[in-house]
């Protein structure tokens, strides 16, 4: 394995049991079971529309599950009070598929926002220092006073990740961090994910279509097929199997 960090196999940070979710007649998740251990990067693969984004939105409490149980850091997301949910979310970092930068705010204000809203006692200089440190970590310190519209897609992704790092999360949820980026930028993002892992000692769920990203960042790969977790294991284990679905996915990725 290329990832050297330590994984604590006795401590689960996310536990999902029998998770179901549908939208009207559309069945999206049909019985997901998944564990994420402390310090582990889990990559979730699956074709477009299999419900990967829905899965992490349920983990972050943005969507309610229909059935099943989702525990994050020992708290059941769907049943805890609003205040508890907010406290839990302070420990979660969510990097959106669309970056979701606040486009009426500058990059500086984007990064300040979660901190100012949650730590009203933080002084101006503390906030400034933290913003600069975090921007430096993603290598975009020079863009501090730009507006989101002035950045490229890859830069927005990195700012989106930086914004989630402002509150020093314990768990990171990445929704397609490398989608639509060129190979070089992809590698940069992969390195960033691994750096975040080392620097903040996070656990992470990384959703992707990109096998290079999966290989570079994942300690464990799981595949979503028809609303269930179909395959699990290290990259080598999953992709040396003869399962036709897995083979399909693999071929599609490298032929494309």
């Amino acid at each position: 394995m290329e990832n050297q960090h330590s994984i604590d196999r006795t401590q689960r940070v996310i536990t999902i049991r029998g998770l179901y979710k549908s939208f009207g007649a559309l069945k999206v998740l049909q019985g997901i079971d998944l564990d994420v251990f402390k310090g582990e990067n889990v990559v979730v693969l699956g074709r477009s529309g299999t419900g990967k984004s829905v899965l992490i939105k349920i983990i972050a409490g943005l969507l309610p599950p229909d059935k099943g149980r989702v525990d994050v850091l020992g708290k059941e997301v769907d049943t805890i009070s609003e205040d508890e949910l907010r406290a839990l979310r302070l420990k979660l970092g969510f990097s959106f598929q669309s970056s979701a930068l606040y486009d009426s705010m500058s990059i500086r204000e984007n990064l300040e926002f979660p901190m100012i809203r949650n730590l009203p006692k933080a002084t101006r200089s503390e906030v400034d220092k933290m913003v600069k440190e975090t921007l430096d970590a993603v290598g975009l310190l020079d863009k501090i006073d730009r507006m989101p519209a002035e950045l490229s897609g890859g830069q927005r992704k990195r700012i989106g990740i930086a914004r989630t790092l402002m509150l020093k999360p314990e768990i990171m949820l990445y929704d397609e961090p490398t989608a639509g980026l060129d190979p070089v930028t992809c590698i940069e993002i992969n390195n960033l994910i691994n750096e975040v892992q080392e620097r903040y000692n996070t656990s992470a769920i990384i959703i992707t279509h990109d096998l290079a990203c999966a290989k570079a960042t994942g300690d464990r790969i799981v595949m979503l097929l028809e609303g269930k977790v179909a395959k699990g294991g290290t990259f080598e284990e999953v992709f040396t199997s003869d399962d036709p679905e897995v083979k399909n996915f693999y071929n599609y990725n490298f032929i494309e």
Partner: peptide, 17 residues
């Protein structure tokens, strides 16, 4: 537009009320 570009969700998950 904040809603459809997930900016409101982003505020929600960063506990920004």
């Amino acid at each position: 537009s904040m809603k459809v570009t997930e900016q409101i969700d982003a505020m929600e998950v960063s506990a920004a009320r």
